[in-house]
């Protein structure tokens, strides 16, 4: 593994709502010896679904302040959340190519005592695993292949779109998550509305509409034969796991579908004990999946 050290930007949803996802992130970092530094002073990215809608110029300044804080330490940013990634990476690209905009932002930042020079690089956690470690290396290290497990993909919007800013993968038909799931020995399941939003973006405005979108996607995953689904974003996880029961009320299908964060599946395939990952904190029980992939351990 490259020796590059990263400023870990955890965001707010994982540590404050879904701490079991933090466990999987930290276990993965440990396994691959990825050096990180925890930095004081970060704030909200801020949430792309609310803050920029009121004032996108102020939002850019808040994001630039986070970029400046990493820059002051001379470190690139690593984030395990799609929303944070879109804000941080999007701002870093916009500000790199535009001196005038950078000047305007720094005028605002001066009030906070920070200055952003335009240097901070940003990566999503799954992007780091894909680009710097790679599906092949991961496949070689898997100790407990997830053979037979059918996992529906939900990559989420804010890691791939807008693709001209984020540049991680194709914005209409990405393959990154497909490759990463198959690397674990599982079967990646595609379905009709795979690239649609989880619904969380419209939740503050119309909860029923939002939950209906979530429920529809879950139904389609089930119709495609999924045993479980995988996400790489805590906002999607919140929508699919915490709110699944309510979402399914909007559909004909009430059968639950376990939801995994990719690093959780990865850790399971590396033989991290489920208890250590805190999988019992999931709202939708994952026992059916564990029974499928860890028969020897359970017996």
């Amino acid at each position: 593994m490259a020796e590059q050290r990263w400023a870990l930007y955890m965001g707010c949803v994982i540590p404050n709502r879904l701490p079991f996802m933090e466990m999987a992130v930290r276990e993965t970092l440990r396994h691959f010896s990825i050096p990180i530094k925890e930095i004081d002073g970060f704030t909200c990215c801020p949430n792309p679904l609310t803050f920029p809608h009121i004032d996108h110029h102020a939002a850019l300044a808040v994001t630039a302040r986070n970029l400046a804080i990493a820059e002051e330490q001379g470190l690139p940013i690593l984030t395990p959340c799609n929303g944070c990634f879109e804000m941080l990476k999007g701002a870093s690209v916009r500000l790199k190519g535009n001196k005038e905009l950078l000047g305007q932002v720094n005028e605002i930042l001066a009030k906070t005592g920070h200055e952003y020079k335009g240097k901070t690089e940003v990566k999503h956690f799954i992007q780091l695993l894909f680009e710097d470690i790679g599906p092949e290396t991961i496949a070689n290290q898997v100790e407990l292949p997830l053979t037979g497990l059918r996992v529906a993909l939900h990559i989420g919007c804010h890691i791939v779109r807008p693709s001209h800013l984020l540049g991680v993968d194709n914005g209409q038909r990405p393959t990154l998550l497909y490759q990463m799931v198959e690397a674990l020995g599982a079967r990646a399941i595609r379905y009709q509305d795979e690239m649609d939003c989880c619904g969380s973006g419209t939740r503050p405005v119309n909860r029923d509409l939002s939950l209906k979108m979530t429920g529809n996607k879950i139904s389609h995953m089930k119709q495609a034969g999924a045993d479980a689904m995988v996400v790489i974003c805590p906002a999607c996880a919140l929508q699919f796991d915490l709110l699944q029961r309510m979402a399914l009320r909007h559909t004909d299908n009430q059968d639950p579908l376990p939801v995994f964060y990719y690093p959780e599946l990865l850790c399971l395939a590396l033989r991290t004990p489920p208890d250590q990952l805190g999988l019992s904190q999931h709202r939708v029980k994952v026992d059916s999946v564990l029974a499928k992939i860890t028969p020897l351990q359970i017996a």
């Binding site: 933090e22 466990m23 704030t43 609310t50 803050f51």
Partner: peptide, 29 residues
């Protein structure tokens, strides 16, 4: 709700603020 969340971000620094109950769940892990 959008305006309320932005007000919360200005007060607490985050869209979702930490709480006693989540700190308990963190402790379990």
């Amino acid at each position: 709700d959008i305006a309320t969340e932005v007000e919360n971000i200005l007060t607490s620094g985050w869209a979702l603020a930490p709480s006693e109950s989540v700190n308990k769940r963190r402790e379990q892990l």
